[in-house]
């Protein structure tokens, strides 16, 4: 551990302020709590919101797992793990079951999370209404007054143009019938995992300086019209080329030499686990 820094890099006052914001976020599920986003040795937009949440929560008893696009081995994930290890000495893992804190970008792990785990998501744009209203002052009022017609309009426009809802990631969801929330860029495949979950979900946006949360067993519904039900991505007829799984979220890979398309589990540690069991 590098003794030149305070434990977990941030000073104690900063960590306390962030934890206080987290508590408020947990108390008002889906509500975006502003917080004083700190400087980190990583540029904003590279997961600083998630890192600040992780750093303010982590202690010697924790085990950390970091994934990026479902993968444990991507540059971003590896470097975040290295950075946290450097200033805490906390063990890291790739096993979803072993970790107490999982920081992630773009995916919720395939293995269901338990009640002693926290999933920290890195969020680029926390405001679900930003796409229909550029002014922060106005979106705040819209949330306060539950004026959500424009976001529904966005869904309807998609139906009119393409005969189906084409939003793939950041699919807006309603939290406890109060706040519409942006579930960060997870595919809508993962949206149902947010509902009535065992674990605590924390969302951190470093650049936009917002924290929000879904506590365990919160009702989270993906927006859908009465006559057009919510549908997640379907991988019917496709399976992972490594583990053969058909029920996971698959990445499409294109081999430019042969012109072939392959499908592969996006959650690499889950894929590995399935293969281990088979052998």
């Amino acid at each position: 551990m590098n003794k030149n820094y305070n434990y977990a890099f941030l000073d104690e006052g900063s960590k306390r302020e962030i934890r206080r914001s987290i508590l408020k976020a947990v108390a008002i599920p889906g509500y975006q709590v502003p917080f004083g986003s700190r400087e980190l040795p990583i540029g904003r937009g590279w997961g600083t919101g998630g890192i600040q949440i992780t750093l303010s929560l982590i202690g010697p008893e924790d085990t950390l797992k970091v994934i990026d696009q479902g993968s444990d081995d991507s540059v971003n994930a590896v470097n975040i793990k290295k950075f946290v290890r450097l200033c805490t000495d906390v063990p890291t893992t790739t096993d979803t079951r072993e970790a107490s804190i999982i920081q992630t970008r773009h995916r919720v792990p395939e293995i269901p999370m338990k009640n002693d785990q926290i999933l920290v998501l890195q969020v680029p744009i926390p405001e679900p209404l930003r796409i229909v209203e550029p002014r922060e002052e106005v979106t705040k009022k819209m949330h306060a007054e539950k004026d959500y017609a424009p976001i529904w309009l966005q869904l309807y426009e998609s139906l009119i143009k393409y005969k189906k809802i084409t939003i793939g990631t950041e699919y807006p969801c309603m939290v406890e019938n109060r706040y519409i929330m942006n579930p960060s860029p997870i595919p809508k495949f993962d949206n149902p995992k947010l509902n009535d979950s065992q674990c605590l979900y924390l969302f951190g946006a470093g650049r936009e300086k917002k924290i929000y949360a879904i506590p365990p067993h919160t009702k989270v519904t993906s927006l859908a019209f009465d006559d057009v039900p919510f549908e997640k991505e379907s991988f019917k007829g496709k399976k992972c080329r490594l583990c053969g799984n058909e029920n996971t979220y698959l990445d499409e890979m294109f081999d430019s030499d042969t012109g072939e398309k392959h499908y592969q589990c996006s959650d690499t540690s889950y894929c590995k686990e399935v293969r281990m069991k088979c052998h």
């Binding site: 004026d147 309009l153 309807y156 426009e157 009119i160």
Partner: peptide, 27 residues
């Protein structure tokens, strides 16, 4: 009007704001 949204969506916005969530009826 919302100039970038379809004519149908412009009308639907009003209907959504009035509380309807049935896309077929809006159309």
């Amino acid at each position: 009007l919302r100039m970038d949204y379809s004519a149908a969506a412009n009308i639907a916005e009003k209907i959504i704001a009035a509380g309807s969530r049935n896309a077929g009826q809006m159309t």
